[in-house]
Design a protein around this nucleic acid. Sequence first.
DNA 1: ACGCTGTGATTAACCAGTTAAGGGACCTGT
DNA 2: ACAGGTCCCTTAACTGGTTAATCACAGCGT
Lengths: 342, 342
Amino acid sequence: MRRVTIADIARAAGVSKGSVSYALNDKPGVSDATRRRILEIADELRWAPSTAARSLSDGRADAFGLVIDRPARALGLEPFFMQLISGIQGALSGSSTSLMLQVTEDTERELDTYRMWFAQRRVDGVLVVDLRVDDPRPELLSQMGLPAVLIGGPLTGVSQPYVWSDDASAVREVVHYLFALRHRRIGRVAGPAKFLHTQTRSEAFSSVTSELGLMGCPTVHTDYSDDAGARATRRLLADPNPPSALLFDNDLMAVAALGVAQEMGISVPEQLSVVAFDDSPLSRSVRPALTAVRRDAAAHGQRAAEVLQRLCAGEDPGSVETPPAELVPRSSTAIVPDPAAG
Amino acid sequence: MRRVTIADIARAAGVSKGSVSYALNDKPGVSDATRRRILEIADELRWAPSTAARSLSDGRADAFGLVIDRPARALGLEPFFMQLISGIQGALSGSSTSLMLQVTEDTERELDTYRMWFAQRRVDGVLVVDLRVDDPRPELLSQMGLPAVLIGGPLTGVSQPYVWSDDASAVREVVHYLFALRHRRIGRVAGPAKFLHTQTRSEAFSSVTSELGLMGCPTVHTDYSDDAGARATRRLLADPNPPSALLFDNDLMAVAALGVAQEMGISVPEQLSVVAFDDSPLSRSVRPALTAVRRDAAAHGQRAAEVLQRLCAGEDPGSVETPPAELVPRSSTAIVPDPAAG
DNA sequence: ACGCTGTGATTAACCAGTTAAGGGACCTGT
DNA sequence: ACAGGTCCCTTAACTGGTTAATCACAGCGT
């Protein structure tokens, strides 16, 4: 099955390649009658433009890139990325833009991927996730002149637009909620400190706990894995004066924590309240069902892709804030018995 | 930052474009001295080939395609796909081949994607997952002449190579294991009947149970969601003569089943044994930890990508069988008390 | 001196589009 | 009748590579 080119259409229509191109691109230079005839023939022959040829002549690659720099093992258990990807696809369906995906094992490889994509003209722009403290990527991309949209924020000192939701206020909401349930010692099991969103949440956590006058509210960093979550939970609960509530940065660690609590004879939610970030179906399936902070990763991906589309079209889209994460209370949180009534 | 082309290199080296091309592609036609000089200059100027130009002239797109036709919501909670993807990347790293990813909402859109990718010459070949009963894709791809590797099998009557692991024997192993634990009524909560791997497992399940003389071992089909898994579990356990063991087609449903058992006052593993397919970290995090059938999705992806590479290179790679899934016993399965000893 | 061979280079066509420039045909105004 | 302007279309250059064909030239045998 030889692929159809505009030369085939031109021959069939009895016109030149140029006219076919004008007709297919809705540009002036052909009569309506000819245009209609050409479009009809193109349709009949099932023509589709060769991305390579188009890309070569106008420089556009008709593709966006997404690099995920996380350990391969960890990817499967982070619903976030797949949700994000399907959101991106949602924004891209309709346009002829495709998504190139790359999973790398370290930052240097990620930077190499950007350089390669740029040099090979493979993508028109990229979406950057997992922003880090002192992240080299915005600067590199800006130097290269490769359009990018950063996912996360809010950011200062970057030239790219970013798409973010207010994690800080979500953390504040959770802590206020736990405070209202009379919790006074709250622990936090966070992701890696290198991530900006971890830092944002950590800062919000420490500022809101001190605003509320809460003492000894520790944050422990992990790599998001169930093992690390379990270890952190054990450490926190082994304290002579252990927290009565724990806030986790993903739901897998929260599930692992339920297991640790059981193994230590601590009942949830009677003796320990648990809250998870990144509400996935998992949260409602485990027992007790997890109170969770739900982010809409798909909406995030969609907005980011839309912003990148506008950026590549030469507009100045500006940054976008998506609705903040919302707290979904379930059975893993409960009120602390009133000591006065005890 | 204007991108460097071979014309720039040619000018700098004082030779023609052709010589530069020969030198860069390690083809005869240039002297060693010239070749070295050209390579040096290319390196210095940070040249990288334009995929568009190369693709246009030699017809290769330097990209593989993967379409996932599952509801967007469901994707996040299936670790399988992300694992598969990282396996594919593993095989592709080193080559300059990229991965194009598309998530579609229905089969017709998936077929459209293949047609578009082919017509636009965007991919050199595709990986096909979630093979279905009467799957139209192998035939369509074969007609189009778009190289493809099917993930799943074993298959008959298809022209493409496939990469598979023996799900049937994994199911047989599980049932024999449960039989050895004195289980005589085993229920199965499966994925959608339309998938070939579901059918393979179902056939293996019904044949092994009847070989062992087990009566009334029902299979219930679901959409893999936690909700559907819970509903199926409720239905099976509400039977007057309920199964003493349940086998699930993914781990999310098995987790949901643990919740249902708890809600119905049935203790796991004392009164009910639970086995899950697709061992993810989740399985070991929940309590009781799930006995699971572990498949290596990443290895699957890697082998499939390797086969596709060879296929695109004009070889006839043949199909590949990956090591069968292995049973990982944990705490969700136990022996049924001996009625004679009761 | 002559033809032959092999090496190392150049030339130019080609891939499938886009697009600036050019050229008839036709209409209009003076 | 003729200059000027539209409209519609063609021509050809261009994008950045690959590659078949060609060519210049040195080395060599007779």
